[in-house]
């Protein structure tokens, strides 16, 4: 079912509580009473159409309105991606980390050693994610925002100057996501196949559930970057280079 503007926001969350993490990214707090999605978006000064496209793509894996998403200004999308990063680094990653910690502490013998290894792998993954995000926020996103600004409003001279000062081409960056997704897949795989935490299986299930959420979320995030941002930026780059 597609979520539409006039559905009650409360019903959206009741129907799929995983969407809480998405509304949180938009800064929306709970307590929206009987208000519709549209009213809540207006209250928080959020573009309702954009919100609906994002929330629907989370709610239904088959929903990804590529053409429509391409019509939004890049700054709107980038702003959303910044918030998503914040959610990964400050909520999700520490949350999973503390769960794995608990699992290590409450295990003993061989199992504890095995979980420690996976914990180390997870830490490696998390520092790679930190690095990747830092690179995007310090280099890629500012570049994109500047490019869009010039593409829309810059004069010929400014554009030429930008091209000569920027060697960075968006395609180089498009291929970098894969490894990040692969690692989280491997962690899940190793936990499922090779860890048998006799007394702690509920904790282990929890970790797996959280990892799967993060994996899905990151997939969605990369899809947005690779299918929306990269093609849009390529068009702008080409146009600027051809002046």
């Amino acid at each position: 079912m597609n979520i539409t503007a006039n559905i009650k926001m409360a019903d959206v969350i009741i129907q799929n509580h995983h969407l809480l993490s998405v509304i949180n990214r938009f800064g929306i707090q709970l307590g929206f009473g009987e208000k519709s999605v549209d009213s809540v978006c207006k209250l928080y000064n959020i573009n309702t159409d954009f919100f609906l496209d994002i929330i629907n793509s989370f709610n239904d894996p088959d929903f990804f309105p590529k053409q429509k998403l391409k019509t939004y200004p890049l700054n709107l999308i980038v702003d959303y991606l910044y918030k998503t990063h914040d959610y990964y680094l400050n909520v999700k990653i520490p949350e999973i980390n503390s769960l794995i910690n608990k699992l290590v502490e409450s295990s003993s013998g061989e199992t504890a050693n095995a979980i420690k290894l996976i914990h180390k792998f997870y830490n490696e993954y998390s520092s790679q994610l930190h690095q990747h995000i830092a690179y995007e926020e310090k280099t890629v996103y500012p570049y994109i925002l500047k490019l869009e600004e010039l593409y829309k409003e810059g004069n010929e001279e400014q554009k030429k100057l930008f091209v000569s000062n920027n060697k960075f081409i968006i395609k180089d960056y498009a291929t970098q996501h894969e490894n990040i997704e692969e690692k989280i897949y491997d962690i899940k795989n190793l936990l499922i196949k090779y860890i048998s935490p006799e007394d702690n299986f509920i904790l282990c299930f929890k970790i797996l559930g959280q990892l799967a959420h993060l994996e899905d979320d990151i997939k969605d995030h990369s899809e947005m970057e690779n299918k929306i941002i990269v093609p849009k930026v390529s068009i702008m780059e080409n146009s600027l280079q051809n002046i």
Binding site: F121, Y125, E182, D186, N189, L190
Partner: peptide, 17 residues
């Protein structure tokens, strides 16, 4: 065969086994 794609993942597998 293992469904493990990254070198770090393979290393953990090798240690576990």
């Amino acid at each position: 065969k293992l469904g493990i794609k990254t070198i770090s993942g393979l290393t953990v597998y090798a240690l576990l086994n």
